[in-house]
């Protein structure tokens, strides 16, 4: 699948944003601190920026509002609806924290639930597609949710450290989420590498009983929408390296840095280490999301010899 920059940025930013919103909604950051007020703002900006980025790949973005209508059947529509619904408790929580230095339990917990459901809807857009076999597994939503948790705890840790607040809980949470997320992701990748293709050129043409089917001629010499959208391929040797880079930058380096934060507390060094952990994790996540699209093979390529 073609790794569109707008969608990679959207899923990465909104995952981080909803994760941070969830950390705030659980009341893990002291609402009286200036850094927590800033964290509320950053969470909303990441979510809003991500959503705006996702509209960039539309052919007719002026009609994007119509995407809210088909929540009965479409995960994309459900995601849009849940994103907007979730803004309500998130904005109430942000208002209470920014202007009144208060943490409100009910909007907080509603925000956590909304963030989780929205990330789940995003992941189900991909996981529900049987035509992309690598995505069509319950491990896909599990990875998205755990990565959102990891990114949110890391960002929460950064803001807590910057404001001189409590860091140990968020640090432990970060390590736990990073471990769980990458365990799930490695299982996801193993699943992709070991699966037997559901559809083959033989089943796609129905000619399997005659023999082995090989593409002789494409419909046209040049690429078309299908081959440029669905026919993206990444060399295996590069994919393996990128997967290692994403694991190191997105999992191992942040985890080690978080241990450093635990040791140094809310000092200047702690803040710097937490900031580096967030940065490294974000780079790792962008790589992971790029691979998520680039490595996935679409069933239509059975007709295009790919």
């Amino acid at each position: 699948m073609h790794p569109a920059l707008s969608i990679i940025v959207f899923t990465t930013a909104s995952g981080l944003g909803y994760g941070l919103a969830a950390a705030l909604g659980l009341g893990l950051l002291n609402p009286a601190l200036v850094s927590t007020k800033l964290a509320h703002f950053v969470a909303l900006a990441l979510i809003g920026g991500g959503l705006l980025s996702s509209t960039l790949h539309l052919g007719n973005p002026q009609r994007a509002w119509r995407a809210l209508s088909q929540w009965r059947s479409s995960w994309l529509s459900r995601e849009g609806v849940m994103a907007i619904v979730t803004f309500v408790p998130l904005c109430i929580s942000a208002y209470a924290a920014i202007f009144h230095s208060r943490y409100l339990l009910l909007p907080g917990l509603l925000g956590v639930a909304g963030a989780g459901v929205t990330v789940y809807c995003t992941s189900m857009i991909y996981a529900s597609l049987k035509s992309v076999q690598a995505w069509h597994t319950p491990l896909t939503p599990l990875c998205y949710l755990l990565f959102a948790g990891a990114g949110g705890s890391l960002l929460g840790l950064l803001f807590a450290a910057a404001g001189g607040g409590d860091t140990p809980i968020l640090a432990l949470l970060s390590i736990a989420f990073l471990g769980a997320a990458w365990t799930a992701k490695l299982a996801w990748r193993r699943n992709m590498e070991n699966m037997d293709p559901l559809s083959t050129p033989e089943s796609a043409t129905g000619l399997g009983n005659l023999g082995r089917v090989r593409l002789f001629e494409r419909p046209h010499i040049n690429d078309n929408y299908l081959t440029s959208e669905m026919g993206f391929r990444v060399a295996r040797k590069h994919a393996d390296k990128l997967a290692k880079i994403s694991l190191i930058a997105g999992g191992i380096v942040p985890a080690v840095l978080v241990l450093g934060v635990l040791a140094s507390g809310a000092s200047g060094l702690g803040v710097a280490l937490a900031a580096l952990a967030v940065l490294s994790h974000a780079v790792g996540m962008l790589t992971e999301r790029w691979l998520f699209f680039a490595e996935a093979r679409h069933a239509v390529m059975n007709y295009y010899g790919g």
Binding site: M1, H57, L58, G59, N60, P61, R63, A64, R66, A67, S74, L76, I125, L129, K130, S131, V132, S199, A204, N224, Y225, L226, E229, M230, H298, A299, V300, Y303, Y304
Partner: peptide, 21 residues
């Protein structure tokens, strides 16, 4: 009503849908 998101083309295993650029 189409916003041109392309998700239907992703969902179709046959490549029956093409976005008009």
């Amino acid at each position: 009503m189409c916003i041109g998101c392309g998700l239907c083309a992703w969902a179709c295993p046959y490549g029956a849908r093409e976005m008009d650029l």
